[in-house]
Write a protein that binds this DNA or RNA. Structure first.
Lengths: 219, 219
DNA sequence: TCAAAAGTGTTCGTTATACACCCATGT
DNA sequence: ACATGGGTGTATAACGAACACTTTTGA
């Protein structure tokens, strides 16, 4: 089967930057490419948009096919279309991003990719195509969104915390997402002012030091 | 000549929202479509990306071909790709926007469009495709960009002012761009704090009322 | 003298940022 | 006792928003 047009058409892909916190550090989900070009290179997951699906649906589908990750709230980052960004043919990609918890997430043994793994953002491999640029843009956007307003993205930050958490744990999560250290007192004022924290009147136990108060959050 | 692929490809277009102020009101540049679908409908200018040009270059080219408008600093708005947004075939569009002065601008008698005209944003015709949505998104973004930071877009606002202008004139421009009235004193504080105004020590003459001080701006 | 636009300061609330010491616990 | 992380308050600066009266000119 082949498809013929009167004018040349570019291919259109969706690429997805999936961020998570693992081991206290910001990670991104990458796949190992199964085919050329950049076969065996690492890349952000993505693939060709089908003709009857919306961009965001294509992104979701590709993400699930390549990594097993489903049900994530994607946000569009923008379109990238430098003419030679793909050596095969003209490929324009629409980039999306999301922030998801990764702990109980099962990375599919990759039907459409040779491998799928979480990478520390501070220890990235060389990436295929212009995915380093896309990822850098996504990283920047993430840092802005996490604290600047109480958005979906910011809410996702709490998914990295257990049901009952200490304020120090919460601060560590936000520091990781923003990529910078925060002042303890200012952070506590901020989180109390912007989120509905419930003081559980419980303390941590088993720590080596002073027990910390436990909180939960309501949205 | 025809082009054949192993799997279906969407077409990719660039569409451009060009804003200007005319007669004190926010206008947008629209073209009358020459061909079906939506032949004779008004639409935001745009067209198919060529295979060897970057998205933004394609946007610039289409804009010039359809309206004669050149040399505008475009900013990407995002990609729109609902499957049935174009009845012919699958078309994904990347939207751009810009704010430009329109007074001495010559609208080409449209090589690629039946007509090109400025429309008052408060008196728009029915638009082709999903251009009403794209335009609404662009309008919203414009309002935010104009005052929130001292960006390229904000700087463009001064192009709607003569070399020597009064603060009332400047306020009118920013009110038009934001789409809301501003407080006179607050506006004067803001413009003085954020822009390098030069007090020309001149006054308007010939007005029916109290003369106003004239300023120029330096960037 | 009147109509019309020009011009001018202060207050308040919110937000971001900087900064230092005592407390409770386990070892 | 000490090491370690938990916990707390104040001061300042910047910003945005609200708000009313006097001045200057032409008609």
């Amino acid at each position: 089967m082949s498809y013929t047009y009167d004018y040349p058409h570019p291919a259109v892909t969706a690429d997805i930057c999936i961020f998570s916190i693992r081991d206290g550090k910001l990670h991104v989900l990458l796949i190992k490419r199964l085919v050329d070009p950049f076969k065996d290179s690492w890349a952000i997951p993505g693939g060709f948009i089908k003709m009857d699906e919306d961009l965001i649906d294509g992104a979701r589908r590709e993400l699930e096919e390549e990594t097993g990750v489903a049900d994530v709230p994607l946000e569009q980052l923008g379109a990238y279309g430098t003419p030679d960004r793909d050596p095969r043919e003209r490929v324009i990609t629409v980039a999306f991003m999301a922030l998801v918890p990764s702990d109980q997430m099962v990375l599919a043994a990759a039907t459409d990719a040779a491998d799928a793994r979480w990478f520390d953002m501070d220890d990235l491999p060389k990436l295929a195509f212009d995915h380093d640029r896309i990822l850098a843009d996504a990283r920047e956007r993430l840092a802005h969104k996490v604290t600047n307003r109480v958005t979906e993205t910011a809410r996702a930050a709490f998914q990295f915390l257990p049901e009952k958490f200490t304020l120090a744990q919460a601060q560590a999560v936000f520091e990781t997402l923003k990529g910078e250290d925060l002042d303890k007192r200012n952070f506590r004022k901020w989180i109390a002012a912007n989120w509905d924290l419930v003081d559980l009147k419980e303390k941590t136990t088993g720590g080596r030091h002073r027990p910390a108060a436990l909180y939960s959050v309501e949205f």
